[in-house]
Design a protein around this nucleic acid. Structure first.
Length: 471
RNA sequence: GGCGGGUUGGCGGAGAGGUUACGCAGCGGAUUGCAAAUCCGUGAAGACCGGUUCGAUUCCGGUACCCGCCUCCA
């Protein structure tokens, strides 16, 4: 069996991955808050952990890996959108409007992530479906002396959990010393965080032992991972910006609610996506959505390729230049494997992937495999092509259904015309008409390939069918 | 202020204490009416200063610069 090694944030080192149960490998990844279109930064963990999911399925078997990614559908930004719609005269109760907003956002999210070639997780629970489990967990925390009720809120008592801060490598005292936020006066300790908060009539709420209210942000992941994966599971993933406070708080809640459990054994965090050297984030407003990129003509497969080219633990700059390179390589690879049937993935590629998800290493291996095929034009390389295709697909590339962007438009009429002109020019030695048509085609983004065998026209980067009119 | 990460050739981007990463671009060649595409070949690196070592871009220490978290965030 392939030995997988993963970098564990908790121990700050790369470790051999050993699942609790090889027949039931379990991974939880923090999903989106569904109040708006996903931006490109949101897509990075999706691609990273999708790749890990694919690797785990390859190694342990498709039916032996469970991947849970939540939808956070309780959030003040969702409420604000719904409230704004209601004030603008939209029909229905606030709850209806909230539901509408989360439903449409989840639909967008699925469409956008599907376009990136991400497999749907095994389970995609919504926070609102697990309110009962959250309330139960909070009650347990109060009983065990790890949480307290004050001013309609329930707060987690960080001083009751000596390990608090271990995951993110900070101490409670240091954090208080450098605190930048105003502390609510009712907190016993400035670092205590909210498990439950009251809702007034204008906000969605659920009945609870502490009155009508709604859960704090962190408790949902603890409750849902417990319900779906158990008290101890294998991998917990998310963006590095979630390490503190979100994941730190999850650890505290879960370990205190289920003493003796490990919660997540391996913690994995992807680095941030950058734009102009700065983190793409909501607060900076420097983000663009996946949908915008797709509409600009960047195929999802190209976006995925670019994401895989940088190691997940390094910051990644999205640039048009990288997308251009990726598109060229993918066109080449698709042409190379047009007649191939996938067999099994290359062992070296799997090894690269198994070494803490070395996407760049896996890509380098694909280049090597492609070169071996290309430099053997005498043979049909049926077997090699099958391995290559299966390897690419392990990375979620060259999948059927993703390649629509690379498929040709019917340019055979123009190709025929160009071929005729050339034949005539060969005799007359006047190549001007040929060159004129060729230039026009190139201007329209068409790649013109003329050889002894004939004329081939292929839509290239920046192909614009409108410019072909009149040719 | 506290904590964490980074600095590799023109650009992007990996691994490994000693032997070619890889890709793009460039250059040379094959091919072409000319090109394109394709194939073959090729130069080029490790922020700075010390230390360990027979040998460091790779390990250790320091300096500089950049970035992230500590506030919603992937």
């Amino acid at each position: 069996m392939t030995a997988i090694r993963l970098y564990n944030t908790r121990t700050r080192s790369k470790e051999a991955f050993e699942p609790f149960d090889a027949r039931n490998v379990r991974m939880y990844v923090c999903g989106p808050t569904v109040y708006d279109r996903a931006h490109l930064g949101n897509a990075r963990p999706v691609v990273v952990f999708d790749t890990l999911f694919r690797l785990l399925r390859h190694v342990y078997g498709e039916d032996h890996v469970k991947y849970v990614r939540n939808f956070t559908d309780v959030d003040d930004k969702i409420n604000a959108t719904a409230l704004a719609r209601q004030e603008a005269g939209a029909p229905g109760t606030l709850e209806d409007l909230i539901h509408q907003r989360t439903e449409e956002t989840i639909g967008w999210y699925h469409a956008d992530m599907d376009a990136l070639g991400a497999l749907r997780p095994t389970k995609e629970p919504r926070a609102t479906e697990y309110i009962g489990a959250m309330v139960a967990m909070i009650e347990g925390l109060i009983e065990r002396g790890h949480a307290y009720e004050v001013a309609g809120h329930v707060l987690f008592d960080v001083r009751s959990y000596p390990e608090y801060g271990r995951l993110s490598g900070r101490s409670v005292d240091d954090m208080i010393a450098g605190a930048r936020v105003e502390v609510a006066p009712y907190k016993r300790d400035p670092m205590d965080f909210v498990l439950w908060k009251p809702s007034d009539a204008s906000l969605p709420g659920w009945e609870s032992p502490w009155g009508r209210g709604r859960p704090g942000w962190h408790i949902e992941c603890s409750a849902m991972s417990y319900e779906l994966l158990g008290a101890s599971f294998d991998i917990h993933g998310g963006g590095i910006d979630l390490a503190f406070p979100h994941h730190e708080n999850e650890v505290a809640q879960s370990c205190c609610a289920h003493p003796g459990s490990d919660f997540a054994r391996v913690w994995m965090h992807n680095e941030m996506l950058l734009v102009e050297g700065k983190k793409m984030s909501k607060s900076l407003g420097n983000f663009f959505t996946v949908r915008e990129l797709l509409e600009q003509g960047y195929p999802g497969e190209v976006i995925r390729f670019v994401m895989l080219s940088t190691h997940y633990r390094k910051p990644m700059d999205w640039t048009a230049e990288k997308a251009r390179e990726a598109e060229g390589v993918l066109r080449h690879w698709r042409a190379l494997t047009a007649d191939a049937e996938p067999t099994g993935p290359d062992a070296e590629l799997v090894e690269a992937l198994a070494d803490d998800l070395n996407g760049a290493g896996a890509m380098a291996r694909l280049h090597a495999l492609a070169k071996a095929i290309a430099s053997n034009p005498q043979k049909d390389c049926f077997y090699e092509k099958g391995v290559f295709l299966a390897s690419a697909r392990l990375l979620g590339l060259l999948d059927e259904g993703m390649g629509g962007w690379a498929e040709g438009v019917d340019l055979s009429a123009l190709a025929g015309k160009l071929a005729d002109l050339r034949t005539a020019a060969m005799a007359s030695k006047d190549f001007a008409p040929v060159d004129a048509l060729k230039s026009a085609l190139i201007a329209a983004g068409v790649e013109v390939r003329m050889s002894k065998a004939g004329v081939e026209l292929v839509p290239g980067a920046g192909f614009d069918p409108a410019k072909l009119e009149g040719l």
